[in-house]
Amino acid sequence: MRSRIFPLIVTFVVFVALYLIGFQRFPAFGTTRVIANFLTDKSFLGIAAVGMTFVIISGGIDLSVGSVIAFTGVLCALLIGELGMHPLAAFGIALVIGAAFGAAMGAVIHYFKIPAFIVTLAGMFLARGGAFVLSQESIPIEHPFFAQISDIYYVFPDRGRLTVIAVLFLIVLLVGILLAHYTRFGRNVYGLGGNSTAALLLGVPVGRTTIMVYMLSSLLATLAGVVYTLYTRSGYPRATIGLELDAIAAVVIGGTLLTGGVGYIAGTFIGVMIQGVIQTYINFDGTLNSWWTKIAIGMLLFFFIALQKFLTNYRGNFGLSRKRAVAPAGD
């Protein structure tokens, strides 16, 4: 078995196990209604997590995601409500701003050699602050377009609804997989995360790739913000605080190594779905506080990090011996 794919398999097994536990206790887990709701409820987290996967595979991190979603919501609410723009135009503007924001963060990370953690932390404050400057309060959005969108859905035989935003999530997922595995950009991201010096020497355009990775992450975070706006029909500056951490959790649970270079978009999808299953189980149970979701995710995260550590050590035998073997050069 290839060690690269092993964490992904573990993730999948955990997902199936959790799902079966849920199904055994609440037969409703088997209905398309519940499954379709996973997709809808987790769509904005999932879209953001796809972008986060690219960032983490490249060896970086993006802490600005939750704030960018909130900023997008408030911006769209203002553009639609105050300026009377059509929602699609507002979304377009938001996406352009989001992409530029991400590209700027990527450029700072690359050209000034500042750790991504710090730069995106600054980005997080900027976007969150920006959202509050635009509005202190939640702004409801009244526009016929929103009603139209929520009226479009595909109904499964047992009345599960596949909504527009769920479909959007699935499209992002597919595009993400194609981008990651079948384009030079995607492979460059893996190369960059695996060993940035080597990648540079092998001809990977490191600067361009870094900027594009953060641009992609912010663009998808903005798209997640659009989805969030469609979902809640409002813009709220206090929204999705800490969502980036849920996204990171989904990525890591999905088998992506935090050290970069190894990971799968599909794994992230399962990571997101695992969070959905846990949340749904706790909702169905009714007696458990919803914060138990966090505890369960925390435990899973811990388990997966331990697994990664174990795997990298196992794999790392070689890496270490190579380092030692190199040492004689210093003699």
Partner: peptide, 13 residues
């Protein structure tokens, strides 16, 4: 000596 390849990618890649 310190081989400049990406250890986490496949040989072909």
């Amino acid at each position: 000596q310190e081989i400049n390849l990406v250890p986490t990618l496949s040989v072909a890649e």
